[in-house]
Deep mutational scan, measured.
Amino acid sequence: NQASVVANQLIPINTALTLVMMRSEVVTPVGIPAEDIPRLVGMQVNRAVPLGTTLMPDMVKGYA
């Protein structure tokens, strides 16, 4: 099963992502693939992302 990117903490709206904010986990539904974590660093979320939430492509500005 493919691992997805999951929020390791509450990520406030418009926050630029850092490695410490994300972890990989096998979840359903599948979100952004864990191998894209390096690409996500520095990108901003367009909404608040609660701890444990799977990051979906539409949550990250410029990802989709």
Score class of each variant (00 low, 15 high):
A7N: 03
N46E: 14
Q2S: 06
I13V: 10
P12Y: 15
Y63V: 07
V30P: 10
L40H: 01
Q44F: 09
G52V: 01
V45F: 02
R39W: 06
P50D: 12
L17C: 02
L51D: 10
V30A: 13
L17P: 01
N14W: 10
N1R: 03
P38C: 02
P38V: 11
A48H: 10
E35T: 15
L19M: 05
S4K: 03
Q2E: 07
D36L: 13
M22H: 01
A34D: 08
G52E: 14
E25V: 13
V20G: 13
D36H: 15
E35A: 13
I37F: 08
V49Q: 05
P12M: 08
S4V: 06
T28M: 08
V26N: 10
A34M: 12
A64G: 12
I13Y: 04
I13C: 02
L17A: 01
V41N: 04
I37A: 06
G42Q: 06
E35R: 15
Y63F: 15
D36R: 11
A48K: 09
M56Q: 13
Q9W: 07
P29H: 10
G62M: 09
T54M: 15
E25I: 15
V6N: 02
T18M: 04
E25S: 14
R47H: 06
V27N: 07
P33S: 12
Y63L: 06
P57F: 10
T28K: 06
P12E: 13
P12W: 11
D58K: 04
Q9M: 14
N14Q: 03
V26H: 11
G62K: 09
P57A: 13
R47M: 10
E35K: 15
A16Y: 12
A7C: 02
G42P: 01
V49S: 03
T15D: 05
I11A: 02
M22E: 00
M22Q: 03
N46T: 12
G52A: 15
M59V: 06
V20T: 14
P38A: 15
G31C: 01
G31Y: 03
I13S: 11
N8Q: 07
L17G: 00
G62N: 08
L51P: 08
N1L: 11
V20R: 09
P29S: 05
E25F: 09
T28N: 14
R47S: 07
T53E: 15
M21E: 04
T18L: 06
P12F: 11
L19W: 04
V27K: 13
T15G: 10
D36E: 06
V45T: 14
K61S: 05
M21F: 09
G52Q: 14
R23G: 10
M43E: 12
L40Q: 01
N46M: 12
T54F: 04
P33E: 05
D58I: 13
L17D: 00
N1M: 04
E35I: 15
I11L: 05
M22P: 00
P33L: 06
L17M: 04
D58H: 11
G31R: 06
N1E: 13
L40P: 00
Q2V: 13
Y63T: 09
A3P: 09
G31P: 00
A64V: 15
L51I: 08
A64D: 15
Q2A: 08
N8A: 05
P50Y: 15
S24V: 09
N8D: 04
V5L: 05
P29N: 08
V5R: 01
T54C: 01
I37H: 04
L51Q: 13
M21G: 04
N46L: 13
M22W: 02
I11T: 03
V30L: 15
K61H: 13
V30H: 15
V49G: 01
E35W: 10
G52K: 11
A3Q: 09
A48S: 08
R39G: 13
V30F: 10
T53L: 09
T53D: 08
V49F: 04
Q9A: 05
P50R: 14
K61D: 06
